[in-house]
Design a protein around this nucleic acid. Structure first.
Lengths: 219, 219
DNA sequence: ATTATTATTTAGATTTACCTAAATTTTATT
DNA sequence: AATAAAATTTAGGTAAATCTAAATAATAAT
């Protein structure tokens, strides 16, 4: 199957939005891809034609098994390039997403597999997300619990779900990285903000938007 | 200046064809880009509008200084990625041109410069071509003489001007690489073929098409 | 159960980068 | 210098991926 860059971006976004949800809506996909709902409808017809998605008018979108396979290949390339940029070229985690968005569209299995090998076949990317293997098999997410939902008092940062520069720079400023261990001091039900503490540094408070995007596991 | 992938390919090809020639013809550019003369004319108007080329109807095409600067950036990226693929991922020289054609379009100065640094700021690519530096300054070609034109009897392979898989695989089969030293045994004026010998291996004959694409220096 | 709101689709344009076929200009040849 | 050949451009069209505005369907609210 030969996909255009645009088609690949749709497939990738559908894959992303499908998690949890049963079907991806036209509007959600338009928002995710920064385009208009009418454009999504157009593309949905094309991808259905190519048997990569299941789509019926007004019924939302789902990847077919074949579509999912394609998505996992793209995700694999994206995450491997992120590793390369961080591990080999010394970029920091907030810089790599945009670059990987471009590099991921170079479709060469040989390149992808050699890159993986060169990087030591990494299993997670710089944001803590698992990297599909050459067969498209994906290790389960390292954790399903966000700091927002977790009830534990002591926990470790396992992944970050939002890859925006804004969030990642905020986390840098606060000293929050993958592997950071933190204590929950207090939860404020008024705005769902959380007061946390890292080692013996002074405690500080983070908003619900932030804590929703920090994936943790209890320790 | 923000260029599309297609515009970048035109700029790069014009740069390539401009060497020696004073102006690049519509037909030559169409052939190089595997497209039609009419399409070249369309694009020429657009690139003139963007002040990247000098172009007057029926008069051929030349890069402006700005166009040349753009071309050198693209060439830099292309050749650095080729080095990466060969030096770090273990590809051989006939495999990397096509992949680099895609990777070269990821436009990020930071990425390019870090890649260069990671590779040890190489000055020639796997085919012997010089790599422009971050300012776009290009070391002069390592040699202007092809095996075809050279009069010397003993010489060393410095670069290969044709990057087709076909030629490079042929050279692999014959044991001709960058740095290979060879003796010219005989030149046959009938078809301009050349009999050569590498060290103490048996001599063999190469055609004019091949010898034209092997750049050499006397030793 | 209507009605209002929101979501989605259709219809019709636009832009980019192509194309073919015909017209024009340049260059080469008699 | 006239004519033939080759190169180039113009005119008009196509496909991909967008868009806006209008129409339609689904969902929510009265």
């Amino acid at each position: 199957m030969n996909l255009s860059v645009s088609e690949e971006n749709y497939i990738k976004s559908i894959y992303k939005l499908e998690e949890g949800q049963d079907a991806v809506t036209t509007n959600a996909l338009a928002y995710e891809l920064d385009t208009k709902p009418a454009s999504v409808t157009d593309m949905a017809k094309k991808l259905k034609e190519k048997k990569l998605i299941a789509y019926e008018k007004y019924q939302g979108i789902n990847l077919t098994p074949e579509g999912k396979k394609a998505a996992l290949q793209i995700v694999r390339r994206h995450r491997l390039w992120e590793c390369f940029l961080v591990d080999k070229l010394g970029f920091s985690w907030e810089e790599v997403h945009e670059l990987a968005e471009e590099l991921e569209h170079v479709r060469s299995e040989k390149l992808t597999n050699r890159l993986s090998e060169f990087l030591g076949n990494p299993v997670i990317d710089p944001h803590g997300d698992p990297i599909p293997d050459a067969q498209g098999k994906l290790g389960k997410p390292r954790t399903q619990t966000s700091l927002h939902k977790s009830q534990a008092k002591r926990l470790e940062v396992m992944a970050v779900s939002d890859k925006s520069t804004a969030l990642l720079e905020f986390l840098n400023a606060k000293g929050i990285h993958l592997g950071t261990q933190l204590d929950v001091i207090e939860r404020y039900s008024f705005d769902n903000s959380i007061e946390i503490k890292i080692r013996n540094q002074p405690a500080f408070t983070i908003s619900e938007q932030v804590s929703k995007n920090i994936m943790v596991k209890p320790i």
